[in-house]
Amino acid sequence: MRIFEAIGKYLLLMQKVFAKPEKASVYYKQTIREMESLGINSVGIVIIISIFMGAVITLQTRYNIETATVPLYLVGLTARDSMLLEFSSTMVGLILAGKVGSNIASEIGTMRVSEQIDALEIMGVNSACYLILPKIIATVVFNPLLTMISMFVGIGGGYLATVATGALSVSDYVYGIQYWFIPFYILYSLLKTVIFAFIIATVPAFHGYYVSGGALEVGRASTRGVVYSSILILLFNVILTQLLLA
């Protein structure tokens, strides 16, 4: 029953979030700020992780196929499609749930326990909208960009692994990543990313917004925010895959 109560509370919060901003220009500035702190600051980690992911997928695929029966360019194709279909959206989603999610929950939680949220409310600001809407917009706009960077860099990582190890010829890899390319996969991934971005922004925000107590509770809320958003991302991954690819 607790879960239904939490869902109800979450939906009520979302209703408060999607209200008319008091002043568009202030919210616009806030959104730009959030894009910087939640989006641009995540580019580095996304690049690092995607290079290694692309590299390891390429090597694993290569060492797991029987070269006598399967042409080697399929290694490139597998690396590309794994990145496009799954790894770039889901892995990046999970990593950002950890990085961005804990950031959001602890920021909002700290504002709650230090009465900064009350201070906003007393000024006549809709605190839920002011604090959360810019974060949603920032992540929903920026995460698809991050996912595309990840796809690109991941396939590059496979290329680097190919060059560095000589496990297969560069021409096979390059042929493979161009072979039988299905553009819908990118759209599919970006659609998933948008949903994940919404989860990453709102679930930790929900946990932070309703903190009561002190620093210890803020820490706990931040952990819960990350755990729940990760689980929800995995759950929606399955649901969306069934809906979009079946």
Binding site: S114, E115, Q116, D118, A119, E121, I122, M123, G124
Partner: peptide, 14 residues
């Protein structure tokens, strides 16, 4: 609330 000002126990500055 725009007619109100409030001072919180901990200051609550942003």
């Amino acid at each position: 609330r725009r007619e109100m000002g409030m001072l919180f126990q901990g200051g609550a500055l942003f």
